[in-house]
């Protein structure tokens, strides 16, 4: 008996989809058979990695944006330990560096020809903070409220992210009128000042 691995099997698929795949195969110098083999191998790989194919493109966009914005991926456990260690030596580092980082990230957005640089910044930041389950933004014409909630958020981490938001809002022309950075949550309320951004 021939093992199934050496046999071909047939199945029926939408002619419309196959025509599209056939066009792509031709453009790549492949047969439709080869391309479908690759597609199936990809789908099996996604299953092995427990990754949703549909979300993969969206998630890759998050990382591309993060990469372009000057972020980097590091092990979370190491990150959490490192920030606390620095905090023991310098309690002001999180608010200081966070603010600077936020200003810089905001300036990146405003330097591009974006229709809504603040909206873009917040959208990308929310997607980057994938381990923060709650990220709420309430934006009115001249007022801005943002809140993050996560049971894993230490006070230092909350201060860092909150200060980053504060620095960004400052660059976008907002003044923070009240804030709270605590273990588990960070929120701030800001109001627009002047007519424009604070970009120098």
């Amino acid at each position: 008996m021939v093992k199934s691995g050496y046999k071909r099997k047939t199945f029926a698929a939408s002619e419309d989809l196959l025509n599209q795949l056939s066009t792509i195969a031709e453009s790549k110098g492949l047969s439709l058979y080869s391309l479908i083999n690759q597609v199936f191998t990809l789908a099996i790989r996604a299953e092995e990695l427990n990754v949703n194919l549909e979300k993969t493109v969206d998630e890759s966009d998050v990382l591309e944006q993060a990469k372009d914005s000057g972020f980097i991926l590091i092990p979370e456990g190491l990150w959490r330990e490192a920030i606390e260690e620095i905090h023991l030596k310098d309690e002001s580092w999180a608010s200081r560096k966070g603010f600077e980082a936020g200003e810089w990230l905001a300036k990146r957005c405003t330097s591009k020809s974006l229709k809504d640089p603040l909206g873009t910044f917040l959208f990308n930041l929310e997607r980057s903070l994938w381990n923060i389950p709650e990220f709420n933004v309430k934006r009115e014409e001249k007022r801005f409220f943002v809140r993050l909630v996560s049971p894993r958020l230490s006070k230092t981490h909350a201060t860092l992210i909150g200060s980053m938001l504060e620095g960004a809002l400052h660059a976008f022309g907002y003044a923070v009128t009240s804030r709270d950075f605590s273990a588990g949550t960070a929120w701030l309320l800001a109001e627009k000042e002047g007519d424009g951004t604070n970009i120098e």
Binding site: F11, A13, S14, T41
Partner: peptide, 14 residues
């Protein structure tokens, strides 16, 4: 929709 039969290695289909 119109369907079309295609061949694929058996182990991949499995």
């Amino acid at each position: 929709r119109d369907k079309q039969l295609i061949f694929v290695p058996g182990h991949l289909v499995d």
